[in-house]
């Protein structure tokens, strides 16, 4: 039963995040959303992912959002339906539903992901990598190159932040009251 309730709560949070008035509450609900997501993943035995999501979603993201929020001004927007956006979302949903029709059942031990490739990891990871946690073994060794990429993504984000935010040319004086059109220097 709880397997049904948690995702449902997730959906409620997800929708509330977007439709609640005020950014701060939105961010708080998003934090809750991330936590619920992490719980759901614990339920699904994906502990590594859950921890990461808790740290990232409920932790860093929230802090980040709040920092940014404290630096900006929020104007409450009117609640109007955006019909084209709705149409696009619904059509995406339709395609997804269509695709779901003959997706294999979840939790089935005999579906392709559980019979191809993965068994190799489960059987050999200890002999080949000395790791008991297969997730760690795949992460660092079998797909270690992906993780190098991932680390690079993090570093890229760091460099991008420095590139964008550091420096002297983005001072207050360049707000839209400024005379020189569109130029920032």
């Amino acid at each position: 039963m709880i397997d049904i309730a948690i995702p449902l709560f997730l959906v409620v949070c997800g929708i509330a995040v977007l439709f609640v008035r005020g950014l701060f509450s939105s961010i708080m609900i998003f934090s809750v959303y991330s936590l619920v997501m992490a719980i759901e993943w614990v339920r699904l035995n994906a502990v590594d992912v859950a921890i990461t999501e808790a740290a990232v979603g409920a932790g860093i993201s929230t802090v980040l959002f709040i920092i940014i929020l404290s630096r900006t001004k929020y104007v409450d927007e009117g609640k109007h339906m955006n019909i084209p956006a709705l149409l696009v979302s619904v059509s995406v949903a339709a395609v997804l539903l269509y695709g779901t029709l003959d997706l294999p059942n979840l939790r089935d031990p005999n579906i392709a992901p559980n019979t191809h490739v993965t068994p190799y990891y489960l059987e050999h990871s200890y002999e080949e990598t000395g790791q008991l946690n297969v997730v760690a073994a795949i992460l660092a060794s079998y797909r270690g190159y992906d993780t190098l990429g991932e680390t690079t993504v993090v570093a890229t984000a760091g460099f991008c932040l420095i590139l964008l935010l550091r420096g002297s040319n983005r001072r207050q004086g360049t707000k839209d009251s400024q005379k020189r059109t569109g130029s920032r220097t």
């Binding site: 994906a46 590594d48 559980n114 990891y121 997730v135 795949i138 992460l139 797909r143 992906d146």
Partner: peptide, 10 residues
């Protein structure tokens, strides 16, 4: 299955 978990960490 550990593989999807690994992918999602990334």
């Amino acid at each position: 299955n550990p593989l999807p978990q690994v992918l999602m960490l990334t």
